[in-house]
Nucleic acid binder design. Sequence first.
DNA 1: TTGAAAGCGCTAACAA
DNA 2: TTGTTAGCGCTTTCAA
Lengths: 376, 376
Amino acid sequence: MPIAAKIRPSGELPGRRPAPEEAALGTTSKPARRKGRAITIHEVAALAQVSPMTVSRVINGNANVREATREKVMRAVEQLGYTPNLAARSLAAAQGTRIALIYTNPSGAYLSEFLVGALRGAARTATQLVVDTWDGLGADGERAAARALAKNVSGVILPPPLCESRGVIAELTSAGVPVVALASARSSEEISNVRIDDFRAAREMTAYLIAHGHTRIGFIKGHPNQTASARRHEGFQAALQEAGIAPDPGLVQQGYFTYRSGLEAAEKLLSRRKPPTAIFASNDDMAAAVISVAHRRGLDVPRDLSVVGYDDTSAATTVWPELTTIRQPIAAMADSAVDILLRSIRRKDRDIHMVVDHVVAHELVERASVAAPPKD
Amino acid sequence: MPIAAKIRPSGELPGRRPAPEEAALGTTSKPARRKGRAITIHEVAALAQVSPMTVSRVINGNANVREATREKVMRAVEQLGYTPNLAARSLAAAQGTRIALIYTNPSGAYLSEFLVGALRGAARTATQLVVDTWDGLGADGERAAARALAKNVSGVILPPPLCESRGVIAELTSAGVPVVALASARSSEEISNVRIDDFRAAREMTAYLIAHGHTRIGFIKGHPNQTASARRHEGFQAALQEAGIAPDPGLVQQGYFTYRSGLEAAEKLLSRRKPPTAIFASNDDMAAAVISVAHRRGLDVPRDLSVVGYDDTSAATTVWPELTTIRQPIAAMADSAVDILLRSIRRKDRDIHMVVDHVVAHELVERASVAAPPKD
DNA sequence: TTGAAAGCGCTAACAA
DNA sequence: TTGTTAGCGCTTTCAA
């Protein structure tokens, strides 16, 4: 997963990682290379006996280069182990384009995925990425920060829950700064969106549980300040209905995406006279909490109780048994968000307001936390 | 926690964030500013009626500026909401300096901390940071990758376990590329180091347990491929000895920093005829596993069993009760690593091989997983 | 204490 | 298809 300073020769797919290639540089004779100084495009050009511009075209996959020339250049690139200088590229190409990724509640695993993806996207497009946290600013502080930010960047990526904040979005869009929301269910009229289909994913997961024979399924909702929470709940309900299972309000508990809230919800669910045989928590942290409560009550997972989560964060595999969950490709989503933002920024120059809703594929990851319900 | 593109006027503390200021730019008359274009140093210079060079001096905290001039410039900076262009700064100042952060086993929470810190450091010093993962390459693959990397960067930051790999280090140092190891206990002769004092931290934690009245304390060791594991174990033993408690080999189990390994170790520890009243796990993931096992066995934490972890990652607070643990300031450490690397790179120009061992303060974070041992 | 000149490495726009 | 020219925004060096 190269994040920066990897050359992209011709049509390489963004997602694929090139195999680590051997250093083929035999003789260090050619161009005198001073200590520690990186190789520049000029040295490559000299070795390939073309102009720097041609080298630039080759490494950027420009079509208008004769095949023979391209190969000559590629050989020189590999021989020298050349890697483009990102700062220079950014300065020259991305005309001052600077985008921001702002987050609150840095919930560990999630955050690192966001960062890795956004970083990769920024490196790929030679865009300057500003990362900042607005933790504990309050609504007014956030608005003020957004206003200040609008002056400094030409685009903003917003993970939840910030992307649900009306104030922040209003401040940004009214300043003409395009915004991309990450992993938010609201496909707003005003801002672009990169997300998975939470409704379908939750329905799919519920159907999976039903297929295993469960009919009394508990559900722990996510934080009400995130629209994705509602979509997941709706997906859950839809699957129940499709299977002809009557919804039982007592089997649905409010959670807040925290481990703690999962603990409480699980207690309520498992204290029922007729407890559920499976519990679907709206994220992995809460699912982990369910497992913990089950264990404390002497229940075996999955023999006595099946548990599933959502997101596939590190919590899903940091727990025993490992969680069956819905995988959200967060890093890839953040990477896409950079592209979308850039496109939007460029469009904006031409005075077209572009809003897209980019839905990427999710995946149901089967691990060890689901089994058929206990007979009895 | 601004990571990039925040100006540092004179002596501002790195940690503080400036209040978001108002946009006071009334007339857009001065320099014609095209849509979305960021403010440049020239515009600031024009407004302050000085040369761009003077502005540069002010925002970089250069001493040779008259106080009146500095204030005039600062006012202009604030008025315009100016933020330096990192790419340009990097291009002009850091003469092609590019450093890399390479990791394997991206263990969620840990990784994001590393990234955030290194990013901040890179932004602060206008250095280009290349992030890459070498997962599943094998020893040979790593060596090859290291050899290739050595040609492309002038310095490398290595978190564990990569910083313990003899092959990688040999490849890098023999190519004259300075390396800084992060959070490794080995204070190598060849490479610099940023770490906490694992021995002292572990001893302190053990003494803390003893002060609470525990004498039968279980210990779960960390992965043997990391030198920090050994230091922590030694610290544990030292505290026991200082308290006059005879070491019991049966109370020490091997772990591998994974949740799973913690599960197994905990089972062994708690199956003993006389189980420990407290367990010290060498990281938070394993401590979380201990809690899980305890619960499954109907033990209350901390009433029946005290549990402590190490690192203070998100796992420490994603568990109930929340873990008492040793806090490693990972982000700050990564930030420092950038500085050390840069210093080392510059020194190297003068042919002095500089190796430092930078030890930062740790902290014992008291939460809810420790109590006095049960009487009886 | 301040300013002017000269790039850092790359790419957009144009010309050949 | 290829090369030339002219910067991107900043900092270094040197001169005033």
